[in-house]
Amino acid sequence: MLTIVEKGKDFWLDEEGLGTLEMILIIAVLVAVVVLFRQKIKEVISNLIDTAGEKSQEVFEE
């Protein structure tokens, strides 16, 4: 009976694979943020591309 308790404690304290779990959670949160703010992200990127195009045209026109 004592070995079962010891093995249970060892299993609970084992941190092997914890890095993988953390990475999966971080990726899941990032995916959720992208899904929630998808439209706003598209608008921001589109505005950045438009601004960059306008500025490059100004440089070439001078």
Rank of each mutant, 00 (worst) to 15 (best):
residue 1 M to G: 13
residue 1 M to Y: 03
residue 1 M to W: 09
residue 1 M to A: 15
residue 4 I to H: 13
residue 5 V to G: 03
residue 5 V to E: 10
residue 5 V to Q: 10
residue 7 K to S: 03
residue 7 K to R: 11
residue 9 K to R: 13
residue 9 K to W: 01
residue 9 K to Q: 12
residue 9 K to P: 00
residue 9 K to G: 05
residue 10 D to L: 04
residue 10 D to T: 01
residue 10 D to Q: 02
residue 10 D to I: 06
residue 10 D to P: 02
residue 11 F to M: 08
residue 12 W to F: 14
residue 12 W to P: 03
residue 13 L to H: 11
residue 13 L to T: 15
residue 13 L to E: 12
residue 14 D to T: 00
residue 15 E to S: 14
residue 15 E to Q: 12
residue 16 E to L: 04
residue 16 E to R: 07
residue 16 E to G: 02
residue 16 E to S: 13
residue 17 G to R: 09
residue 18 L to T: 12
residue 18 L to W: 08
residue 19 G to Q: 09
residue 20 T to R: 13
residue 20 T to E: 10
residue 20 T to F: 03
residue 22 E to Q: 14
residue 23 M to S: 13
residue 23 M to N: 09
residue 24 I to R: 12
residue 27 I to D: 04
residue 27 I to R: 05
residue 28 A to Y: 06
residue 28 A to G: 07
residue 28 A to F: 11
residue 29 V to G: 02
residue 29 V to P: 00
residue 29 V to M: 07
residue 30 L to M: 15
residue 30 L to S: 15
residue 32 A to C: 10
residue 32 A to M: 05
residue 33 V to L: 14
residue 33 V to Y: 15
residue 33 V to A: 11
residue 33 V to E: 13
residue 34 V to E: 05
residue 34 V to H: 09
residue 35 V to N: 08
residue 35 V to F: 06
residue 35 V to H: 10
residue 36 L to W: 12
residue 36 L to S: 11
residue 38 R to Q: 06
residue 38 R to F: 02
residue 38 R to M: 04
residue 38 R to W: 07
residue 38 R to Y: 03
residue 39 Q to D: 11
residue 39 Q to R: 09
residue 40 K to F: 01
residue 40 K to Q: 09
residue 41 I to R: 08
residue 42 K to D: 00
residue 42 K to W: 01
residue 42 K to Y: 04
residue 43 E to C: 02
residue 43 E to A: 03
residue 43 E to H: 07
residue 44 V to W: 00
residue 44 V to A: 02
residue 44 V to T: 04
residue 45 I to V: 13
residue 45 I to M: 13
residue 45 I to A: 15
residue 45 I to R: 08
residue 46 S to C: 01
residue 46 S to H: 10
residue 46 S to M: 00
residue 46 S to W: 01
residue 47 N to E: 15
residue 47 N to I: 05
residue 47 N to S: 06
residue 48 L to H: 11
residue 48 L to D: 15
residue 48 L to G: 11
residue 48 L to R: 05
residue 50 D to N: 05
residue 50 D to E: 14
residue 51 T to A: 14
residue 51 T to C: 11
residue 51 T to R: 09
residue 51 T to V: 05
residue 52 A to E: 00
residue 52 A to Q: 03
residue 52 A to D: 00
residue 53 G to A: 14
residue 54 E to Y: 00
residue 54 E to F: 02
residue 55 K to A: 02
residue 55 K to G: 01
residue 55 K to N: 06
residue 56 S to G: 05
residue 57 Q to T: 07
residue 57 Q to N: 15
residue 57 Q to Y: 10
residue 57 Q to P: 03
residue 57 Q to F: 12
residue 59 V to A: 05
residue 59 V to I: 15
residue 59 V to N: 14
residue 59 V to R: 03
residue 60 F to N: 08
residue 60 F to T: 01
residue 60 F to K: 13
residue 61 E to L: 10
residue 62 E to S: 09
residue 62 E to Y: 05
residue 62 E to W: 04
